[in-house]
Design a protein around this nucleic acid. Structure first.
Length: 429
RNA sequence: GCGAAUGUGGUGAAGUGGUUAACACAUCUGGCUGUGAACCAGACACUCGUGGGUUCGAUUCCCAUCGUUCGCCCCA
């Protein structure tokens, strides 16, 4: 027999991991639905060009991290490295911008693929949750989206989240700034690190992100974005930061924050989690405003704002910091029996209880009472119901409360009522 | 793509160039064929990620490969 290995950068989630991932999605969906966001589901692969056009030719994501292939019909296909591009395409394909009220408010949740070096909480197939608000007309659209993301992260259990935020201005402002940066860095670039040399050619804004201490000295004297922002752009940004202040959201203006995707303009932001000892554990979510993504894929000019979160990364961080666990699965009752005749009765009884809405389980393995009871305990069961010969004969079943050890006999016809009454307490706490 | 560490049963983990690979937990069986515990007895790795090489002999040494983890790059 060949043995099949888990593919690099993929994972199997089960038990707590699967439960937590599931729960995470549930909470995120519930939170954004408070703001009127609805789900949108798009394919996990698209034609490659959609991503090169929208995500940007200069980004590493497109350059070296895409899972691309040619299908049997000769089409160039890529697994999506992020979900925004597909959502934009869907909006244009289905002309949603013309037939629905603006702004469109969609959330998405699903797998994305990037061929990169796996690390903890970071996989080649990972799950992104995110939102897109398309057709924004006010900085309040941006502010509301940013606050919604912040609040979502608190809802899933992060004790504190800080926001890094910056404004890039519109496309023209950014082009001017980019030109100014190139001019400034040109005489220095020979002495800077290899990455910066590359970035100088592909995307000079990203040089501002460099962590090399020597480069940082040069960067510190570089022209600042704010010198190139118009009054309107500054005013737009101020509406957003004012809103953050009204809600006491801790934010930090970071003028070196530029993000890796080419399509952002105006406001960009990252959510960071800082541990008790003050070390920044990195971005746990990020997003920004973009003006020409819809038009880039064939629709009208529509300003938009969105953010994305990586569920695996959230999950692995939460595992270390969260004191309270999400509710564990449990069973209302477990049927315990011995012998073939009793098995049939137990089977039928289990079905009856399930039809009445009780979580119920039993084994078909010929185990003795002790072993069955042990399994029931392990599965976090509230009541064990004994289905023995006496019970079958008398139509009365011994029900044992596995927590209190109390046991009493209940007639078949009274079982549902009995469980309803005794589980009520359990279900409401 | 670059640098480093690591890989022994279901789990945690010890160990050695050479007859049966510790120990603990979990699991299973029996003592106890209608009640979860405890106790007692017993079972449980044709094999030490995979493939080569060195050797009379390798889980142990060497090489390659794959996976995992950490740092860089990038990013969710």
């Amino acid at each position: 027999m060949p043995t099949y290995q888990l593919q690099r950068g993929t994972y199997d989630a089960y038990d707590d991991d699967a439960l937590n991932l599931d729960k995470l999605q549930e909470i995120l969906k519930a939170t954004v639905s408070l703001y009127g966001f609805n789900p949108i589901i798009t394919p996990i692969y698209e034609q490659t060009e959609l991503f090169t056009r929208s995500v940007g030719e200069s980004s590493d994501i497109v350059n070296k991290e895409m899972f691309s292939f040619v299908d049997k019909g000769g089409r160039n296909i890529s697994l999506r490295p992020e979900l925004t591009a597909g959502v934009m395409r869907a909006i244009v394909t289905n002309k949603l911008y013309a037939t629905r009220d603006l702004p469109l408010k969609y959330y998405y949740c699903g797998p994305a693929f990037r061929y990169e070096r796996p690390q903890q909480g970071r996989y080649r197939q990972f799950t992104q949750f995110g939102v897109e608000r398309v057709g924004v007309t006010s900085p309040l659209d941006d502010a509301e989206t940013i606050i919604m993301g912040y609040s979502s992260l608190l809802m899933i259990g992060f004790p504190r989240v800080t926001l890094k935020i910056n404004t890039l201005g519109d496309e023209k402002t950014r082009d001017n700034y980019r030109a100014a940066l190139k001019e400034y860095f040109a005489p220095h670039i020979a002495s800077m690190c290899e990455d910066c040399k590359r970035r100088f050619e592909t995307n000079p804004l990203r040089i501002l992100d460099c962590k090399d201490p020597q480069d940082r000295e040069i960067i510190a004297k570089a022209p600042s974005m704010s010198e190139y922002l118009s009054d309107e752009e500054k005013a737009y940004f101020k509406v957003i930061t004012d809103a953050l202040e009204r809600f006491d959201i801790p934010y930090e203006l970071d003028t070196t924050l530029v993000r890796g995707l080419d399509y952002y303009s105006h406001v960009v932001f990252e959510y960071h989690y800082t541990s008790d000892d003050g070390t920044n554990l990195g971005a746990i979510g990020a997003g920004g405003h973009y003006d020409n993504l819809v038009s880039e894929v064939g629709g009208p000019m529509l300003s938009s704002v969105g953010f994305a979160l990586g569920l695996e990364r959230l999950n692995s961080l939460l595992k270390e910091i969260k004191q309270e666990e999400y509710e564990k699965p449990f069973l209302d009752c477990f049927l315990i029996y011995q012998g073939e005749e009793c098995q049939t009765v137990a089977f039928d009884l289990a079905m009856m209880l399930r039809f009445n809405g009780f979580k119920c389980d039993l084994l078909y393995q010929n185990k003795n009472y002790g072993a069955q009871l042990k399994v029931a305990t392990r599965k976090m069961t509230s009541f064990a119901i004994f289905v023995g010969e006496d019970e079958v004969k008398n139509h009365r079943f011994n029900i044992k409360n596995l927590e209190t050890q109390e046991q009493e006999a209940v007639a078949y016809d009274d079982l549902v009522a009995y469980l309803d009454e005794h589980l009520e307490v359990h279900h409401h706490d």
